[in-house]
């Protein structure tokens, strides 16, 4: 009974935790606690085989399945513990409490008396005893569970299987599509800029800088921009900083109008913009037959 009194509060708390924690992973872990506790109780209740099965099958296999699925599904808004159905939570607690109270009353009404104990039944070994019962009296049910398991496995495979409806897209297909897009709309033919190129931070969440110093938003993975965690590319500031350093160096060497140089710089940037636009137009003109060839 010592094991029971030690474990029971832990199990109840863990079970309540399943109710209240927000994240499903935590709930799974708490459930594992309850299951392991149960396994220990099985051992205490002279059921060594079930003890092993509980650990192996439940805690080992089933809980792992849960965790795998959680991994696949990912974090979800349904983790929120805010109730959406009016009165559901209150009613659930009331009815559940009533159920527990009633079962408790029912247990209070009966007197179990002294347990017979399993010393006699487990005389030839618990597993042998179980096998004796399982393969004599319950053999038909046992066979039926075999059928059930095969069916369940098949069912799960059917449900999880995803039929490919279109032929697999090959690299040649993708190249052809890209050239076609270039031919139709003048879309950039080459690879997109990788994040961090020319930027000061060579990180995946920092947009690359175009030759004119403007950040290229398309270089950042869309999931990062959607999440709003993309860093801003301090393009001009960096350029200004570099220019400032250079000017400071110039200032040291010779007199010059830094303001004038800056305006010339700006001019140069506008020229670059224009040149890029022209290039795109030329590309559209030149690329059309090329796209057709491809």
């Amino acid at each position: 009974m010592i094991a029971f009194w030690l474990l029971a509060p832990v199990m109840v708390v863990a079970a309540l935790g399943v109710l209240f924690v927000r994240k499903a992973v935590h709930a799974a872990l708490l459930l594992a606690v309850v299951m392991i506790g149960l396994a220990v109780l099985y051992a205490a209740l002279e059921a060594p085989f079930l003890f092993a099965v509980q650990i192996v099958v439940y805690t080992g296999a089933i809980m792992m399945l849960f965790l795998f699925v959680l991994m696949l599904v990912g974090v979800d808004a349904s983790d929120s513990v805010v109730e959406t159905i009016r009165g559901q939570r209150v009613l659930a607690v009331v009815v559940g409490g009533a159920f527990a109270a009633l079962v408790g009353v029912l247990l209070g009404q009966v007197t179990l008396g002294t347990a017979v104990g399993l010393e006699g039944a487990n005389e030839g070994g618990n597993i042998e005893g179980l096998a004796d019962v399982l393969f004599s009296r319950y053999v038909l049910a046992f066979e039926a569970t075999a059928a059930l398991l095969v069916t369940a496995a098949l069912g799960a495979m059917v449900l999880a299987h995803r039929e490919r409806l279109t032929p697999r897209e090959t690299q040649a297909d993708r190249a052809r599509a890209r050239v076609r897009l270039y031919g139709e709309g003048g879309e950039h033919l080459g690879p997109k800029a990788a994040p961090g190129v020319y930027a000061r931070h060579n990180a995946v969440d920092t947009p690359a800088l175009l030759p004119d110093g403007t950040p290229a938003e398309s270089s950042v993975p869309s999931i990062i921009s959607a999440r709003g965690t993309a860093r801003s590319a301090p393009a001009y500031r960096d350029v200004d900083a570099v220019v400032g350093q250079l000017e400071a160096a110039d200032h040291d060497r010779a007199d010059g109008d830094p303001r004038r140089r800056r305006s010339g710089d700006t001019q140069a940037t506008g020229d670059a913009d224009r040149a890029r636009a022209d290039g795109a137009a030329d590309g559209a003109r030149d690329g059309a037959p090329g796209g057709g060839d491809a």
Binding site: A92, A98, L102, V103
Partner: peptide, 10 residues
């Protein structure tokens, strides 16, 4: 369903 179970236990 749980309500029905409660009634049965009751």
């Amino acid at each position: 369903v749980l309500g029905g179970a409660v009634i049965v236990v009751l």
